[in-house]
Design a protein around this nucleic acid. Structure first.
Lengths: 107, 107
DNA sequence: ACGTAATATTGCAATATTACGATGATGTAT
DNA sequence: ATACATCATCGTAATATTGCAATATTACGT
């Protein structure tokens, strides 16, 4: 017990849950929002902006990156993060398609 | 440590995270999907359909209901669940509006 | 009132997540 | 080479989540 019984659900359902999990923490939403608002990309500024430790921010960035939402390019020692807009829209579409299907034939 | 530092984020961001959290478990997605597919409403069939214990399903239903997504009406001893489509669309819009804003001015 | 069916709640064990300090790796400047 | 800055990873403590058995609770039929 304690662990989600992922294996009893379809791939499609698990994938949607996986996406939602990324957005299920305010820090990650704030990070995504902040990154998207910067003209160029950013780096360690996220730490100051959000107010969590560098280690914690780095962890959250990994989670966000794991579903392909980030482009991170090093410029010297600084890493500049940027949204992968194509992937972002892909996920957005997939979520919205689930929402649409769900509302269709409801009582 | 261990707990999310909710208080350092804006209400709007925390709300979106709250919504996402509900969808961040495959069982809850499966439940929502199943409910929406039923002609009339349903009840204890969810337990058989999903394959988790009655206690666990009941818990998940509470989480889904806590953000106003369920209309549950008793018909005798049976409780028939139904999607609150208005609320559902409201949440859908709010999520999508965040997505839209985020992709606007990206590098 | 009693037994049964349907759902909710409680208590607990297993696991996951969040957060941070410390450490490591890499790059820049002096 | 040394010092510093940036970011990732490891280890660990605190807390949250998941899942179930056991136990309520509620409604129905007899």
């Amino acid at each position: 017990m304690g662990a989600s019984k992922v294996y009893i659900f379809s791939d499609q359902i698990n994938e949607i849950a996986q996406f939602a999990k990324v957005f299920a923490h305010p820090a990650r939403i704030a990070i995504i929002k902040f990154i998207s608002e910067q003209e160029g990309c950013i780096c360690n500024d996220i730490v100051e902006e959000i107010g969590l430790s560098q280690a914690t921010i780095s962890q959250h960035l990994t989670v966000i990156g794991n579903i392909g939402l980030l482009k991170g390019t090093f410029e010297g020692k600084k890493k500049c993060y940027c949204l992968n807009v194509e992937r972002y829209n892909e996920i957005r579409m997939q979520l919205d398609s689930f929402f649409k299907k769900t509302t269709l034939n409801c009582c």
